[in-house]
């Protein structure tokens, strides 16, 4: 039986392809894409302010509200600012770390360092943000205890805390692509630059940076887009500060159409960012 089935399938590659594709395509297209499409349609509906039910009547009211209310513009700008800052801090921290790992450390140390950078990726997201809650706690937090002797205070909960927390979460995602990029970079290029009289920093700026640019872009896709949609970090260490995700979360239970409308913002920004990244060609050379 099995043998004849196998022979039959071997003669019919289209049948095999259909058998392979049906389940995953149904899952991704019907279940996932379908759900997304329905959410997008909901963004054009309104809500009955009396009963709270969704009225299925196509209109642009939500988008008008979103675009005219200055409060939402501020949230968008704040979220963008946070995502850009997180990407910046991750890059600045990651480059020297990755450089040491790829070009200076001995092979054995290298392996250990990679493991050390990777391990926190497996530690729970919530635990890491919780850790920063105990670090940043104003007054009796760990940061105040550590840094008081040198006169630095914890920034407390708010914007800076969110930036620290998100940078902490996504830092490994920036280190690893840069490390991979530097590993591929031949050492003799650096030697040549040095022999021709370039200083360390000049070599970095003129030789290393252009060559690892695709890695930076790859890393930034994680740091930027993961920050853009986050709301849990803001809930735990953001004080009263709201990001786009928080607005979506809050509207979800009281006004789903409006939550759907707001949700289109991070998705649009990410699509734009991806488009720009594609145009630089950085992804093709990865």
């Amino acid at each position: 039986m099995l043998h004849s089935l196998s022979t039959y399938m071997h003669k019919k590659p289209r049948m095999r392809l259909t058998a392979l594709l049906t389940a995953p395509v149904l899952w991704l297209v019907v279940a996932y894409l379908g759900a997304l499409a329905m959410l997008l349609v909901t963004a054009f509906f309104t809500i009955d302010s009396f009963t709270g039910n969704v009225i299925q009547q196509f209109n642009f009211g939500n988008f008008q509200d979103m675009l005219t209310d200055a409060a939402y513009k501020n949230v968008v700008l704040r979220t963008l600012g946070i995502a850009i800052s997180v990407t910046f801090f991750c890059t600045v921290l990651a480059i020297p770390m990755a450089f040491y790992m790829a070009k200076i450390a001995r092979p054995k140390t290298q392996k250990i360092l990679v493991a050390l950078v990777l391990t926190p990726l497996w530690a729970s997201y919530l635990v890491k943000i919780y850790a920063w809650r105990t670090m940043l706690e104003p007054g009796n937090g760990v940061l105040d205890w550590l840094l008081k002797p040198i006169g630095i205070h914890s920034p407390g909960f708010g914007g800076p805390a969110i930036i620290i927390g998100l940078s902490y979460l996504w830092l490994p995602y920036m280190i690893l692509p840069i490390y991979a990029g530097l590993e591929r970079l031949p050492n003799n290029l650096l030697d040549a630059s040095g022999d021709l009289g370039a200083h360390n920093f000049y070599t970095f700026r003129k030789v290393i940076l252009p060559l690892i640019f695709p890695s930076l872009v790859a890393g930034s896709m994680f740091t930027f887009s993961l920050s853009l949609g986050d709301y849990i970090t803001a809930q735990i260490i953001g004080g009263k500060l709201q990001m786009l995700g928080n607005v979506v979360y809050q509207n979800f239970s009281i006004n789903l159409p409006f939550a759907a409308t707001i949700a289109t913002i991070p998705v649009t920004i990410m699509a734009l960012y991806l488009y720009l990244v594609r145009r630089t060609g950085a992804l093709a050379s990865m």
């Binding site: 996932y32 887009s225 853009l228 949609g229 709301y231 995700g245 939550a259 949700a263 998705v267």
Partner: peptide
């Protein structure tokens, strides 16, 4: 996509 978008969808 942000988890919150997938979640509410």
């Amino acid at each position: 996509l942000p988890g919150v978008v997938t979640g509410i969808a």
